[in-house]
Design a protein around this nucleic acid. Structure first.
Length: 272
DNA sequence: CTCCCGTCCTGTGGGC
DNA sequence: TGCCCACAGGACGGGA
C-alpha cells in the first residue's frame, strides 16, 4: 500500500497521454460504474469537442477542449487511464475519433479520483486548484517567494500537503524533500528560516526531477499508461524506510503520524 | 480568514 | 490455515 500519484507520476502520465489524445475528438464521454456527482460531473458536455492539449497543474490533468470547456482528471489514490479495458472498477469510458486506441478507460478502485468536464477556468468544484501555489518546476518557484509563502503556524509537513506554498507535492515527496533538507516534519512552517526555505526549495526541485527521470514511484497501484512501473522507489531515503538505518547517518528512520499521514524521518538528521 | 478533524473508499496485510 | 479488521491517504466540507 501507500502510493499516490504526485507530481512526477502525473507528469509521466501527461507525457504519455499528450501524443495519444491531443487533436483527437471526443465522440462520447460517459460514467460507467460510478455514482453521479461532482467527481464525475458534466461528462456529456465533452461530446463533439476536440482535445486541444494535455496539460498539468499540480496533480491535476487539464485537457482544454475546443468548445471552451475543460476535461479535468485527478487520479486520486488509485486512478489509472488506459486504452485497454480494465477488469473492474471502471468509472468512465470515453469514445474518441479515429481507429487506433479509440477508447479511453478510467479505472479507479477507491474512487478518490475525479474525471469531470467544466467550463474552462471554472474552479467552483475545484477549490484547491484555485488556491494552489506555483508549479515547482517553473520560474515562479523561487526561494524568496517560497519563504514568504511559509506563513502557516502548522507543521511544515501539513502546510506542504495543502498545496498552497507549492503545487504537486504529496506524502512521499514531502517526506523525501524534508529528509534531504534535514528539516523535522513537525517544524512550524513559519519558523523555517530564509536559508532553510531556500535549501528546501532546491531539494524539492531535485527530488521531483529525479523522480520524473525515473518515471515516478511505484509502490503498489501506480502504473504508467502502458502499464510500466516507476523506478524511483529505489531512490527513496525516508518514505517507507521506517525501521531501516538512515542512508546518511545510520540512525533508525522513525515513523509518526502528522496530519493523519504516515510521516517518515530521521530523528538524528532532522532535529526540531 | 485559519486551523483542525471527519468523510469518502476498498484491497491488502498483519495478527491471532 | 483462514478469518477479521486496521490501515493507506488527497481533497474537501464543516465547525471552532
Amino acid at each position: 500500500m501507500g502510493r499516490m500519484p504526485e507530481l512526477p507520476e502525473v507528469e509521466t502520465v501527461r507525457r504519455e497521454l499528450d501524443p495519444w489524445l491531443t487533436r483527437r475528438t471526443i465522440v462520447r464521454a460517459r460514467r460507467a460504474d460510478a455514482p453521479a456527482g461532482p467527481k464525475y460531473a458534466h461528462l456529456e458536455r465533452a461530446d463533439g469537442q476536440r482535445i486541444e492539449a494535455v496539460t498539468r497543474r499540480g496533480k491535476f490533468l487539464l485537457l482544454p477542449l475546443s468548445g471552451g470547456d475543460e476535461l479535468v482528471i485527478h487520479l486520486g489514490m488509485t486512478g489509472i487511464v488506459s486504452y485497454t479495458k480494465p477488469a473492474g472498477h471502471l468509472r468512465v469510458v470515453v469514445q474518441l475519433s479515429g481507429k487506433r486506441k479509440s477508447t479511453l478507460y478510467f479505472r479507479d478502485v477507491r474512487r478518490f479520483g475525479r474525471f469531470l468536464v467544466l467550463p474552462r477556468g471554472d474552479r467552483g468544484l475545484l477549490p484547491s486548484l484555485r488556491q494552489m501555489g506555483p508549479e515547482p518546476l517553473s520560474e515562479a518557484f523561487d526561494a524568496a517567494s517560497f519563504h514568504a509563502a511559509l506563513t502557516s503556524s502548522s507543521a511544515i509537513k501539513t502546510s506542504l500537503l495543502s498545496q498552497r506554498p507549492v503545487a504537486g507535492l504529496g506524502n512521499i515527496y514531502i517526506d523525501e524533500a524534508l529528509w534531504r533538507a534535514r528539516i523535522h516534519p513537525l517544524t512550524p512552517a513559519k519558523k523555517i528560516s530564509r536559508n532553510k526555505a531556500a535549501q528546501l526549495r532546491d531539494v524539492i526541485v531535485e527530488v521531483l526531477l529525479a523522480s520524473i527521470a525515473a518515471q515516478g514511484t511505484t509502490i503498489n497501484d501506480y502504473r504508467t499508461v502502458d502499464g510500466q512501473v516507476g523506478a524511483f522507489v529505489e531512490q527513496l531515503d525516508a518514505y517507507g524506510h521506517d525501521g531501516d538505518p538512515c542512508s546518511r547517518c545510520g540512525r533508525t528512520i522513525s515513523k509518526i503520524v502528522v496530519g493523519a499521514r504516515g510521516t517518515h524521518f530521521c530523528p538524528s538528521c532532522q532535529r526540531r
